[in-house]
C-alpha cells in the first residue's frame, strides 16, 4: 500500500524499572483524561478532566527531571488557564442544556486528520537514529532553576535574552489590550453620573 514506507524494527524497548512503570501509568492516565475531556457531555466535567490531564503532563515532566517546566505547567495551565475556563463556564454557559452534537462529516474529518497525524509522526520520528539510542537524561542540574534562569537572561552564545524580551513585549501588549477593553469610555462615565 505504501511502497516507500519500510517499517523499522519496533524500537521501543521496555526496561521495566519503577520509573518506567510510573511513566507509562501516568501516560495512560493522561490519555484517558484527555479522551474524557473530549467525550464527556457536561462541559464543566470536561474542564476538570482537562485539569487532570495537565497535571499528569506535569508529572511526566517531573519524571523526565524537568522540574521547572513541570511547575510552570501546573502554575500556568492548572492555576491560570483552566481556572479561567471554569470561570467563564460558570458565568456564561447554559449547563442545563443538552450538549451539542457533532455532525458526521466533521467527525469523519477529525478522524482522518488524526490518522494522518499519527502516520506523519511514525514516518518522521521512528527513523531518527538518536531518539532510539540517545542519552536518556540531561546532566545533573541542567534543567534546574538557576541554570534555567541564567540561560534565559544570558546574552552569550547560549543566551535567550532576545526571545525572552520579545515575549515580554507580547505580554505587555496583551495587558494594554485588556485594559483598553475593560476601560470605560467617556460616554459611559457620563451616563453613570446621569443615573446617579
Amino acid at each position: 500500500m505504501f511502497p516507500n514506507l519500510t517499517i523499522p524494527d519496533f524500537p521501543l524497548s521496555f526496561p521495566m524499572g519503577g520509573i518506567d512503570i510510573a511513566f507509562y501509568a501516568v501516560a495512560i492516565v493522561m490519555l484517558v483524561t484527555a479522551v474524557f475531556t473530549v467525550a464527556v457531555k457536561n462541559i464543566l466535567q470536561s474542564a476538570v478532566a482537562l485539569i487532570f490531564s495537565f497535571v499528569a503532563t506535569a508529572i511526566l515532566y517531573l519524571l523526565l527531571h524537568a522540574e521547572f517546566i513541570a511547575l510552570a505547567q501546573v502554575m500556568v495551565y492548572v492555576g491560570g488557564v483552566v481556572i479561567f475556563v471554569v470561570f467563564t463556564i460558570l458565568l456564561t454557559s447554559h449547563l442545563g442544556e443538552d450538549a451539542f452534537s457533532t455532525k458526521i462529516p466533521r467527525l469523519f474529518a477529525a478522524f482522518a486528520l488524526s490518522i494522518a497525524f499519527v502516520f506523519v509522526m511514525i514516518k518522521c520520528i521512528l527513523p531518527v537514529e538518536s531518539l532510539s539510542s540517545g542519552v536518556v537524561s540531561a546532566p545533573e542540574g541542567y534543567s534546574g532553576l538557576e541554570q534555567f534562569s541564567l540561560r534565559l537572561l544570558g546574552y552569550g552564545p547560549d543566551g535567550f535574552i532576545i526571545p525572552f524580551e520579545v515575549v515580554s513585549v507580547l505580554l505587555l501588549m496583551t495587558l494594554i489590550c485588556a485594559i483598553t477593553i475593560a476601560r470605560k469610555t467617556k460616554d459611559e462615565v457620563e451616563k453613570e453620573k446621569a443615573v446617579k
Binding site: 464543566l44 476538570v48 485539569i51 522540574e67 521547572f68 511547575l71 510552570a72 501546573v74 502554575m75 492548572v78 492555576g79 491560570g80 483552566v82 481556572i83 471554569v86 470561570f87 460558570l90 534546574g144 532553576l145
Partner: peptide
C-alpha cells in the same frame, strides 16, 4: 530545591476546589 515555585503552583488547586 524549588520550594517557592511549588507553593505558588499548588495554590491554584484551592481556587479550583472552591469553584467546583
Amino acid at each position: 530545591s524549588m520550594g517557592i515555585p511549588l507553593i505558588i503552583a499548588v495554590n491554584g488547586f484551592g481556587v479550583l476546589g472552591i469553584l467546583l
